[in-house]
């Protein structure tokens, strides 16, 4: 008989013998695993479904996930117990391994702790439009280890929680209203008063521009090529971008209609001797 066939036969016979001795334990383990999985899954679903009504969605999801993982660990311990594996030895070995792992997984622990602090501090929540670490977009998930942001151009970014927690976070959804600001240059020949009136009229006709706080239009600078008007108004935070886009376009149309020029950059050049030549 060839060697590999012999090894296969021995292995099969050994497995068969082990199976005949341990089959009740295997079946018991499978039943235990199935029970814990099913029970854990149902409990997870129920926790999420009822939790989401009283606590924020992301927290409800994390709690329900934790419950499921807890049942998985319980299943593991129960199966080890069925096979009469001494947990004391494993715990000692686990302790040593834990120290080694602890050193190796400092970043993971840091992210985990940051994740917990993110839940406590709540600088952001799922669905918030934010800018974190230079990534601007909407938060789609805050996990225990990382936070996921879908940027405005539709790309998913995964940021470790310790980065999120220690970074400057700009949350664009936490205030009632946001200010829109433009700098608009009009030519030195234009009537400043008329330009201000035209711009204010556009803002007043825009439903998303708030009446209070009121809009402001003022001369902020005499530029190289234009008189710079600062235009400010407030819009409800969820509609800030819509208002910003629409009003700027309408200001352009209105200024054109009123004959107010938005000049190109220009420079007046005097040639030496012009004065003498007249």
């Amino acid at each position: 008989m060839e060697l590999y066939k012999y090894i296969l036969l021995i292995s099969f016979e050994a497995f068969n013998e082990w199976y005949q001795v341990n089959s009740p334990k295997i079946i018991a383990s499978l039943v235990t695993l199935t029970f814990f999985l099913v029970f854990g899954y149902i409990l997870k679903q129920l926790t999420y479904r009822y939790g989401v009504r009283v606590i924020p969605k992301d927290i409800a999801r994390s709690i329900s996930n934790t419950i499921f993982y807890f049942f998985l660990i319980l299943a593991g311990f129960s199966i080890l117990n069925i096979f009469d594996i001494d947990l004391t030895g494993m715990l000692i070995a686990g302790g040593i391994a834990g120290i080694i792992l602890g050193f190796a997984s400092q970043t993971v622990v840091s992210n985990l702790m940051s994740g917990i602090f993110l839940y406590i501090d709540r600088p952001v929540k799922e669905g918030d439009p934010v800018e974190v670490e230079g990534v601007g977009g909407r938060i789609v998930d805050i996990g225990f280890l990382s936070t996921r942001i879908v940027s405005w151009d539709g790309v998913l970014h995964r940021l470790p929680n310790d980065k999120v927690f220690t970074s400057l976070i700009k949350n664009f959804s936490r205030t009632t209203a946001r200010r829109v600001e433009y700098r608009i240059g009009i030519s030195y020949k234009s009537d400043v008063k008329l330009a201000k009136e035209v711009i204010l009229k556009v803002i007043n006709e825009e439903p998303l521009a708030l009446i209070e706080p009121g809009p402001q239009v003022f001369v902020s600078e005499f530029g190289d090529s234009a008189i710079i008007l600062n235009v400010r108004f407030w819009a409800p935070t969820p509609k800030w971008f819509d208002a910003k886009m629409r009003v700027l376009e309408n200001i352009k149309y209105a200024l054109d209609e009123a004959g107010i020029e938005i000049p190109y950059p220009q420079r007046v050049v005097w040639l030496k001797g012009d004065k003498e030549r007249g």
Binding site: T176, A177, A209, L210, I211, E212, W234
Partner: peptide, 13 residues
């Protein structure tokens, strides 16, 4: 033109 206003500050009004 239907308009809105904030009562209180823009931050938490």
């Amino acid at each position: 033109t239907p308009k809105m206003a904030v009562y209180g500050g823009a931050a938490d009004g």
